[in-house]
Amino acid sequence: MGHDTAEWVFVAVVIAVLVYVGVDSWIVQKEVEDVPADAEVIKVTGQQWFWSFEHADGTKEISTLHLKKGHAYKFEIYSRDVMHSFNIPDWVVFEDAVPGHTNHAWFAPNEVGTYPIQCREYCGLLHYNMRGSLVVEDDKS
């Protein structure tokens, strides 16, 4: 009757698409998880309901984070109470802040400007307002 052949062809096409999706994501994920060795560490702490940042030299900031264009930064993400999610949508930076764990994310801004920072995991009353901003400045030095 040929029913089986048609169905197998269909399944084979689906599997081919899925293999493509899997392999391509694997390649990109591998690239993206490779943090540059010279990335500067920024400690990010989420708590109800704001973000605080600590630079490598000990400078602390609350809600607003100042970074320099052309440098790579590695975020060490902590939480002080419940789960949060550190997110800079414009730079595709995203990782959960889990109490008791240290998570990592990195990026290297190549454009100056001000970008929103937000919390992307429900964390209670003012979750919607757990916002900050990222200011990327020209490297003057």
Binding site: V14, I15, G22, E95
Partner: peptide, 22 residues
């Protein structure tokens, strides 16, 4: 994926997810 999962675990679960599609 975003809770600090390592690369290998992510790959395993990605394959598991894709396997449901056929």
């Amino acid at each position: 994926y975003s809770t600090g999962m390592d690369f290998t675990t992510k790959v395993v679960f990605m394959i598991g997810t894709l396997a449901a599609v056929p």
